[in-house]
Design a protein around this nucleic acid. Structure first.
Lengths: 194, 194
DNA sequence: TTCCGAATAACGATCGTTCGTTATTATGGC
DNA sequence: GCCATAATAACGAACGATCGTTATTCGGAA
C-alpha cells in the first residue's frame, strides 16, 4: 500500500500537472499544495523553490524527448524506419508524459536566460536528430533528393508538437491511428515514393 | 504630431505586446503601465479591468483570422487558389499582427468558460473554412480524392500556427519564401498533382 | 528515539483595483 | 480670440488579497 505521506516525486508530478494545465504563473504554491491535500508552505519540506519545480519538470520533458530521438536514430535500417520511430516515439512521449511534455513545450519562456538557452539548445539537438533522418532519406532516394531538411524538420515538428493541443484519447482515433495519420501526412510531403 | 497622452487603443496594443511575450499571468498592470510610461493605476482611466484587456486583444486576433478565412473562401477559382490565399492570409495575420495572433493562440485558456468556449467555436469555424477548401479540392481532383479533410486541416493548421514560434523576419526566409515553403510542404501532402 | 513530512503562523513583496485629486486637452458662448 | 467649462488622462497613496517563502512546532512511522 502506498504511503499516506507525499514524496518529492509526488510534488514534482503534481507541479507538472498544474503547470501544464494553467501555466507556471497561473499556478500558486497554495494551489499546488491543495492538489496534494497539503498547505502550500508544506511543499517546502520537499523543495527549495517554485522555480526548482519548473526546472525539474522541464528537464524531465527534455530528457524524454531526447531519449526518444536517440532510440529513433538506432531504429532499424533506412530512413523510413527511423522516421516512423521518431514520429511514434514523439507521440508516445506526448501521450504518456503529457504534463512534462506540455510544460517543456510551453513554459520554458519563464526560465532565466541560462536555463532557457539550455532548453533551446535541447530543442535544436532534437530537431537536428530529425534533420539527420531526413538527410539520410534524401540521399538514399527514399525521400525527394532536393528536400530542404532544415525547413521540413520544422514543419514535421510543428505537426508533432501540436498533437498535445487537439488530440484526445477519447476521440475517434486511437494511438496507432494517430501515429499513422501523422506519418501518412508527413510521408507524402517528403515525396519520392509512389 | 501624435499626442503625448495615451488612448485606449494604445493600452490595448501594449497589452497585446506583453501578453504575447510574457503571458497574461506573467504581466502585471504595473508592468503594462511602465510599458507606456504610466503608473499601473492610470490604466484604469482607459479600461475597467485587466481581463477586459485580454478579451479585447483576443477578440481582435479572432476577427483577423476569420476575416482572412473569409477572403480566402472568395479567392479566385478552384481549391488551389483558395488554399494559397488561406495560407498566405494566415501568415500575413501572424506577421502583421503578431501580438494579437499570439495572444489569441496561446492565452485563451485564461478566459472564463463562456469566453473560452467562444474562442474554441471561432477556431472551429476557421478550421471548417480550411476543411471546405480541402473538400472542394478533393472532389475537383486537385487533391487526393480519399483525403481526410478533418485530420488534414488540423495538420495544416498545426504548421501554420507554429510559424509564430520559430519564424524571424531577420532569418534567411522573407515572407514570400516562407509562404511558398509552407505551401509547398502542405501541397505535396495533399497529393494528386505530379 | 529519531526523523521526516505536515501544520501553522507569519514575513515582506506584489497583485488588481479604488480613490481623491491634479494636469492637460476639447468645446462652445461671447 | 478669450475664457469658463467640461471631458479626459495621469498621478500617487492606499486597500485588501494573494504571492513565494521562512521559521517553528507537532505527530506519527521506523
Amino acid at each position: 500500500m502506498t504511503s499516506v505521506r507525499n514524496s518529492r516525486a509526488d510534488v514534482v508530478a503534481a507541479a507538472g500537472r498544474l503547470f501544464a494545465e494553467r501555466g507556471y504563473h497561473g499556478t500558486s504554491m497554495r494551489d499546488l499544495g491543495r492538489e496534494l491535500g497539503l498547505f502550500g508552505s508544506s511543499l517546502y519540506s520537499h523543495v527549495d523553490s517554485k522555480e526548482d519545480l519548473l526546472v525539474e519538470v522541464i528537464e524531465k520533458g527534455a530528457a524524454l524527448f531526447q531519449a526518444s530521438a536517440d532510440r529513433a536514430a538506432d531504429a532499424g535500417e533506412g530512413a523510413e524506419a527511423k522516421l516512423h520511430a521518431f514520429i511514434a516515439g514523439h507521440i508516445d512521449v506526448v501521450l504518456d508524459h503529457e504534463d512534462e511534455a506540455r510544460t517543456y513545450l510551453n513554459e520554458a519562456r519563464v526560465l532565466d536566460d541560462r536555463r532557457r538557452t539550455a532548453v533551446i539548445d535541447a530543442r535544436d539537438r532534437y530537431e537536428h536528430a530529425l534533420r539527420k533522418i531526413l538527410n539520410e532519406g534524401a540521399s538514399e532516394g527514399t525521400f525527394d533528393s532536393d528536400l530542404d531538411s532544415s525547413l521540413t524538420s520544422i514543419f514535421i515538428l510543428s505537426v508533432l508538437n501540436a498533437v498535445e493541443r487537439w488530440y484526445s484519447p477519447d476521440g475517434r482515433l486511437d494511438r496507432a491511428e494517430l501515429v499513422s495519420a501523422v506519418e501518412g501526412f508527413c510521408r507524402k510531403a517528403l515525396g519520392s515514393g509512389a
